[in-house]
Computed example of a mutant assay.
Amino acid sequence: MNRTGVQMSPIDTKSMLNVDESERGEPGNEQALVDVRSPYIAEAEGLGSIPLPATISGALNMGVQMLKGDSPQILLDKLGERMAFERTGARLYDALITKCEVMGGGQLSMALEDLAVIRADEARHFLLLKNAIESLGGDPTAQTPSADLVGIEASGLVQVLNDPRTSVAQSLHAIVTAELADKAGWETLIALADEHELIEMVNDFTLALNDEREHLALVQTWYEEALGLTYGDVEIEPPTSSAAAKP
């Protein structure tokens, strides 16, 4: 039984709120917390560093790019980010497949074969990024700052999928969150590759982005089905004249 709300104990709630003003004390603030955090922020050295190219050709390639005014280290950082996220994506779908095998998908149009195809796409994207990093002379096993960042961000999603208490619908909610982030990440990566005039990468990454758009459309549909929603049933009314007039 959920006992988290104060309405579960109205008598105690009333007693707690019925306190004389003189006993309430001064309103609190977060200054003490700010005082603790500030020195740590000022002294921190940043979330890792961009790894140097592991090969002579890679170092030369990076040097040439920097002489041209480009920032190849940013591209390598974002390549590492996407590779880390795709690896996590494959693990998320592994967990979802296991959950659906045990719990079943109910009335969803989602099939285990669909999830296996998406999982294979995520693994294929991981290898695509690995090859892209190596083509630039980078080391795909080195963790870049952005790879570290998305690993921390995605850890909560991994916990949701691996929690035996979460339902299929709740798991799909986490997957939708991951796919939204994945789509945005590929768009950024394509823009960076285009700036560096890496046409082959742009083409390959665009195909991967199209895959992710399809993944997002599918999981959004499955999530809506899990909630009992029928696609297209919700109609958004146009704003009234008074609402439209607001700045």
Score class of each variant (00 low, 15 high):
residue 175 I to H: 01
residue 71 S to M: 05
residue 26 E to V: 12
residue 225 E to A: 00
residue 116 A to K: 11
residue 190 I to R: 00
residue 23 E to A: 03
residue 186 W to A: 01
residue 221 T to F: 08
residue 177 T to S: 03
residue 236 I to V: 12
residue 63 G to L: 06
residue 223 Y to S: 12
residue 33 L to A: 15
residue 187 E to T: 14
residue 113 E to I: 11
residue 62 M to A: 09
residue 122 E to Q: 13
residue 22 S to A: 03
residue 108 L to V: 02
residue 140 P to S: 01
residue 153 E to F: 14
residue 171 S to F: 01
residue 159 Q to N: 14
residue 149 L to H: 09
residue 131 N to D: 15
residue 223 Y to H: 15
residue 60 L to D: 08
residue 195 E to P: 00
residue 92 L to C: 07
residue 191 A to S: 05
residue 148 D to L: 11
residue 228 G to P: 01
residue 77 D to I: 08
residue 11 I to G: 05
residue 38 S to Y: 10
residue 91 R to F: 10
residue 123 A to T: 06
residue 192 L to P: 01
residue 78 K to R: 13
residue 207 L to Y: 12
residue 167 S to L: 06
residue 44 A to I: 01
residue 193 A to S: 07
residue 213 R to N: 14
residue 172 L to Y: 04
residue 192 L to E: 06
residue 228 G to A: 02
residue 51 P to G: 04
residue 107 Q to P: 14
residue 155 S to N: 14
residue 237 E to Y: 10
residue 75 L to H: 00
residue 206 T to N: 10
residue 141 T to E: 15
residue 3 R to W: 10
residue 194 D to W: 01
residue 162 N to T: 09
residue 70 D to L: 15
residue 22 S to V: 01
residue 231 Y to R: 15
residue 30 E to F: 15
residue 108 L to T: 04
residue 196 H to F: 02
residue 118 I to G: 03
residue 59 A to N: 09
